[in-house]
Simulated scan of single mutants.
Amino acid sequence: MTSAARVSRPLVAAGGAVLLLALALVALMLVRPSSSAPATTSSSSAPAETSADVGFARDMAVHHQQAVEMAFIVRDRTSDMAVRRLAFDIINTQANQRGMMLGWLEMWGRAKSSPRPPMEWMGHTVTPRGDGALMPGMATDAELDALRAARGRDAEVRFLRLMTAHHRAGADMAQAASAAAGSDEIRNLASGMILGQRSEIALMADMIEERGAAA
């Protein structure tokens, strides 16, 4: 069987999953306040600008964006189907979650970005280092460049290590949001993220070991 044939079935399955996620997101985005309250106008029920809900949605959208970027990079640098399946899962799941969070910010009448420091809603002070790693767990520009230059097993191990650190920090952020958020949307999403990312951390630990590398 050719490599193209081996990849075709996962790609079809992934395409179906993307379609279902897209339809769900469209349905979500159609839910708007009544005509008397424009979608872009803050209401009394919308989370405050300084809330954990708004801060988490903004920061995790950025965090997820880099995870999706790394998954796309490794997808094109290995033929290993286990790593490619994991990359597809991360792309589909985190791109969808990112869209949901940006959609909620819009419905709440909140900007999608802020000049305030990242993770301020958690009581942390994060000073940008200028290396691309805007928050804990995020890869630096140099690490991303090294991942782009790698191929095969080297790319797989680099990706798995970077994504493990990324998921650990993401799960910590989600834990804080699930405890501090005031909206059901953020609490439920954050709780799901904790379970999903911790499960993938365990999976990636096994995958690193299978490749004879140290976590």
Rank of each mutant, 00 (worst) to 15 (best):
D53Q: 06
G55R: 04
A57E: 07
M60D: 02
A61L: 10
V62L: 14
V62P: 05
H63L: 02
H63W: 01
Q65E: 06
Q65P: 05
Q65F: 08
A67P: 02
E69C: 07
E69F: 13
A71F: 10
F72W: 12
F72K: 06
R75A: 06
R75K: 06
D76F: 04
D76C: 06
S79M: 10
A82Y: 12
A82P: 07
V83P: 08
R84P: 12
R84F: 01
R85L: 15
A87K: 09
Q94K: 00
A95I: 14
Q97A: 15
M100L: 14
L102H: 06
G103T: 03
W104N: 08
L105G: 13
L105Q: 06
L105P: 04
E106M: 07
A111W: 01
P117I: 03
M119S: 13
H124I: 06
H124W: 15
T125V: 15
T127N: 14
R129D: 15
G130N: 09
G130I: 14
L134N: 03
G137K: 05
A142N: 03
A142K: 07
E143S: 08
D145C: 00
D145N: 03
D145G: 00
A146Y: 09
R148E: 15
R148S: 12
R153D: 08
E156G: 00
